[in-house]
Design a protein around this nucleic acid. Structure first.
Length: 594
DNA sequence: CGTCCCCATT
């Protein structure tokens, strides 16, 4: 009896050592323990399982495997540790081979799954299912996910809360919100993770309102949100630019103490930024005790989105000064800021020198920014060369950027070439076809206009209704392209025309858009004037455009920026009698928060 | 042993 107690406590201590060695990736510490363990008798399966976990964490899959193979007997935990080790280090084939889900005779994916799955699946425990489903979720492997689901059903495991939540998440990540919902609905016990997973599935599908409703349902059912739940809910607000709801959630997170968690404060930055309140986003940032690279990236790209490229660059340099290492996304933000400011040399310095220094390999998005930068500087031919020599010839976005600049600089010769180039890529979004049609119209190539129209019809490309909305106070003002039902429509249109007149007077080409007009009338000069690349409007993937109070087009300079700010002030005043109330409310919220 | 968040170009 006494010896058993001592063994148990020794085991406890050994597990603790292995855990800490895993956490710090202290290979020698764990190996020393391993050496002692080999000599000790009797064989302890729990310790050996943790040994597998330790080696797997340290990236020594070979050693983990050796321990596994040398064990006189194993349990499902041994397999799970090894498998999650393989999965997290990317050896998916080995991981799944371990449990013989898949034969590796040929392609590892689809065909062999069904045949071989039944063989070893009886060795799985419920954690195996969770592990594999997590893998399916991150790989978006719906085919395997469905197979696993079928097996789970057979063994009646799908109602267990961990397995169920993993299923909900898997379907959500695979873009099957409906299936996620079905699994979620029948779960007899739903915990905070199940709720968060389903909310996130709706978020993925851009069903933001439904996701927010789920947040309320969850609270009604007595489940408390955690930091991730708040983050997901705030991301839904960001998708709707629902400033009021987002602020309220921020206050709620403050009350419950989740405000200080990184996912929550990052989501708050995102929400404020996407809702047009970049100042509040910055206030959140400065009130955070520490930041991660996502916080920085959100701030940098947030400023860039608002046309505040100077501030974006400042934030970037601030980031470097506190020795935070920029990431792939950081450089996307920085280069887009450079593009706005026309900083060609600096842009190339970041692309060719700094990115190499910090070990970030430039990708499509960076090259696309560089195209935008060259276009912004009016170096259209270089931009064309750049596209062709940087493996982004198939990137519609890059060509579109060039196409727009061709219009701005009235270089219709190049514009025509670019349009032909884009057509070869067979784009499938309306926006591109509208741009193409505009280009041809401007270049007086009516044959081109007809061609584009025909293509759109044949491909079944339908025009999404242009919708803009802005939240002022507690009201959301919606503007549809095809109707003019907003009571203050006349006033707003009048102001818009006035502003465009002013911009033209200073000599700028008004390429900012406010989608209050009908994009059906592509041929009208008026339309060509209003409709162009994103600027005052921010595209929201779901259904339309969100007017940003201070978003500024790359091609518009400072004095126009000021005009725009004034202009949006005017709009706000038109839309609300007492705009300062909303302002005061936000101030109060922020004061509470910090 | 395990499930939920993570920013980007036009």
């Amino acid at each position: 009896m006494a010896s058993r107690v001592s063994t148990a406590s020794q085991r406890h201590a050994a597990v603790a050592i292995l855990r800490s060695a895993s956490a710090t990736r202290d290979l020698s510490k764990g190996m020393a323990l391993h050496a002692r363990l080999i000599l000790s008798t009797p064989f302890d399966i729990v310790l050996h399982n943790h040994l597998i976990a330790f080696y797997a964490k340290c990236g020594c899959l070979g050693l983990a495997r050796k321990v596994f193979d040398a064990m006189p007997f194993r349990n499902s935990v041994s397999g799970n540790f090894l498998m999650s080790g393989y999965i997290s280090s990317g050896h998916h084939r080995d991981a799944l081979g371990l449990l013989r889900v898949i034969d590796f005779g040929g392609s590892w994916m689809v065909r062999t799954i069904v045949r071989s799955m039944a063989r070893a699946v009886e060795q799985w425990d419920h954690v195996s299912y969770v592990t594999v489903l997590g893998h399916c979720a991150s790989m978006k492997d719906l085919v395997l996910g469905v197979q696993v689901h079928a097996q789970a059903l057979k063994r009646r495991l799908e109602l267990k809360v961990y397995v169920g939540s993993a299923l909900v998440d898997m379907y959500g990540k695979c873009d099957c919100a409906h299936d996620a919902h079905c699994v979620f609905e029948v779960l007899p016990e739903k915990n905070v993770v199940s709720w968060t997973a389903i909310m996130n599935a709706y978020n993925q599908k851009e069903l933001f309102e439904d996701a927010l409703q789920l947040f309320l349902d969850m609270e009604m059912s007595g489940v408390r949100p955690n930091d991730i739940t708040y983050a997901v809910a705030l991301n839904n607000c960001a998708g709707l630019a629902a400033l009021r709801t987002g602020s309220a959630l921020g206050v709620s997170a403050l009350k419950t103490g989740y405000w200080r968690y990184l996912p929550v404060s990052n989501a708050l930055i995102n929400m404020y930024s996407k809702s047009g309140s970049i100042k509040d986003a910055w206030k959140v940032f400065t009130s955070m005790p520490y930041h991660d690279v996502v916080s920085w990236n959100l701030t940098i790209t947030g400023y860039a989105h608002h046309g505040l490229a100077r501030e974006a660059m400042e934030a970037f340099h601030y980031m470097l000064s506190v020795a935070e290492v920029p990431s792939y996304v950081t450089f996307v933000g920085v280069l887009s800021a450079c593009a706005q400011l026309g900083l060609v040399d600096e842009g190339f310095y970041y692309l060719n020198t700094m990115m190499k220094e910090v070990g970030v390999i430039p990708g499509k998005e960076h090259y696309t920014c560089m195209v935008g930068l060259l276009c912004r500087a009016g170096r259209l031919d270089e931009a064309e060369q750049f596209i062709m020599s940087n493996c982004i010839v198939t990137d519609v976005v890059a060509w579109r950027s060039l196409l727009i600049s061709c219009q701005v600089y009235r270089n219709y010769g190049l514009g025509h070439r670019v349009a032909e180039q884009i057509l070869l890529l067979k784009p499938n979004d309306v926006g591109t076809y509208v741009l193409l049609s505009n280009m041809y119209a401007k270049a007086n190539r009516w044959d081109g206009v007809v061609k584009v129209r025909k293509l759109m019809r044949n491909m079944g490309v339908r025009k999404e209704p242009g919708v803009s909305w802005i939240q002022v106070g507690s009201e959301v003002h919606v503007f549809r392209a095809e109707d003019k039902v907003h009571p203050q429509m006349d006033q707003i249109t009048e102001k818009l025309e006035e502003l465009i007149y002013q911009i033209k007077a200073i000599g700028y080409i008004p390429n900012f858009a406010m989608v209050l007009h009908d994009i059906e009338d592509e041929q009208k000069e008026e339309h060509l004037m209003y409709h162009s690349q994103s600027s005052v409007v921010q595209y929201i993937p779901r259904k339309g455009y969100q007017i940003h109070p201070c978003r500024l087009s790359a091609a518009i300079q400072n004095e126009v920026h000021v005009t725009l700010l004034i202009y949006f002030d005017v709009i706000k005043k038109i839309l609300t009698e007492k705009p300062e109330i909303d302002e005061a409310y936000r101030e109060a919220t922020l004061r509470n928060a910090s």
